[in-house]
Computed example of a mutant assay.
Amino acid sequence: MIDLAAETERLLAFAEGSRHPEGGFAWLRSDGTPDLDRPRELWITTRMTHVFALGELLGWPGAAELVAHGLDSLRHDFRDPVHGGWFAQVGGSTDKRAYEHVFVVLAAASAGDDALLGEALEVLDTRFWDQSAGALVDVWNRDWTDLEAYRGANANMHGVEAMLATGDPLWRERAVRVTQRLVVDNHPRLNEHFDEQWRPLPDYNVTEPAHPFRPYGATIGHWFEWARLAFTLDRSLFEADARRLFMAGVQDGWDGSGFVYTVDWDGRPVVADRLHWVLCEAIGAAAVLGEDALQAEWWDLAQERFIDPADGSWQHELDPSNRPSSTVWDGKPDVYHALQATLIPRVPLRDSLAASLR
């Protein structure tokens, strides 16, 4: 089996190249060079700050300075000093998105920055948390006057990850409510997209099925991710659902040589390209659920097809014949999923990876 500690270090070394000279972290190309022509993305800076916070807990040289670099950018470059919250991009979109805001929470929690964490949770509580629905709303405009008539599972799933990382009983209780709505009450294949009344939108983005954040149909990788998070959140409540989702991901997602990205509502592949993060989440779920034989098989696939020994990191996308592709993603934007996959099998199961490492 692959040396997971060595792979963690290799990913951290690759990730160092993402440091943006103007603050935060840049989108990395396939060869690991930063694409400084792209706007700085909040989701990349938050996730890479989280990654380097884990690196600091592992004792990785230079990680602490990179964490400070990321936190400084969150306090200044991305933060809206007028209306509060964080911009989706620097010099680009001024939307305020739940997806990115929960990663501000995760980055602050992993880094142990209580002031930033408190501010981020205040925004999450007052702007995104819908108490009546027991879930997060999705996208506001800059001054919080216009809320998009869309509700999404993706932001809420990562919201559960962030809520767990806070260590706060109130947010844990909210994570249970989110999981109840979007896992237990969301059969048979998990709907990803809803209207403002939380009614499913099964045909959402049917003309844009390869969307990186809101694809049409059911997203296989999220079944694995939900399985891991639900099991971690409360085994007594959600173990059966976690195992159901895990096995469904194997049944519908595995086509004999890799995992497809999405399936339709009958379980037929829609986008058959292989996304690296789907395999990473399958590995993480297998580790948590004790599916050791499958985990070993999937690490073999990762080593054979995804891990890039020449340019570093993992290929972010392969086509159905397992050749590098860019239908959904181009380059290697971040190492969040891959790095976590190397850690989950070898640390104690806690509410967050930072808690496990501490």
Rank of each mutant, 00 (worst) to 15 (best):
F238M: 05
G253T: 12
D266H: 13
Y261H: 11
R199E: 11
M247Q: 13
A227Y: 02
L229Y: 13
P200H: 05
G258Y: 00
F238Q: 12
N322C: 14
H222G: 02
D292S: 15
Y216F: 09
V206D: 11
G312F: 13
E208Y: 04
T232M: 12
F213G: 06
P209W: 00
G284Q: 15
G249N: 01
G312R: 11
G217A: 05
R274C: 06
W198A: 15
W226F: 14
F259K: 04
I220V: 14
R268Q: 14
A272P: 03
E281R: 10
A230N: 11
D273Y: 03
F306K: 08
R323M: 14
Y216S: 08
D266P: 03
G284Y: 05
Y216I: 03
D234E: 10
D252I: 03
G249L: 04
P269D: 13
G221Q: 07
H222R: 07
S326Q: 09
E239P: 06
Q295R: 15
P269I: 12
L294F: 14
V271W: 02
L275H: 05
G221V: 04
D241F: 08
L279K: 09
L318H: 08
N322S: 15
F213E: 02
E225C: 05
R228T: 08
A227T: 05
E208R: 13
L289P: 07
R244N: 05
V250A: 06
E291R: 11
W277A: 12
E304P: 05
G312M: 10
D255A: 07
L275F: 10
P200C: 12
A286G: 08
Y261W: 05
W254M: 11
F231D: 13
V271S: 01
A296H: 08
A248L: 14
D252V: 01
A218E: 11
L233W: 13
F231Y: 12
W298N: 08
L294Q: 15
S257P: 01
G253E: 07
A302M: 13
E225A: 05
E291P: 08
A210R: 01
G258W: 04
A286L: 10
S321E: 15
A240V: 13
S325Y: 04
G221E: 08
G284F: 09
F224H: 01
R199W: 11
L289F: 06
A310H: 11
V288I: 09
D319T: 04
A285N: 06
F213H: 06
E304M: 09
L294R: 15
R268S: 14
E304I: 03
V270Y: 09
A285G: 05
T262Y: 03
A310V: 14
P209I: 03
S326Y: 02
V288L: 14
W299T: 01
Y216A: 13
Q303L: 15
E297C: 10
S326V: 00
V206R: 11
H316P: 06
I220M: 01
A227Q: 04
G253M: 04
V278M: 08
A282W: 01
P215I: 03
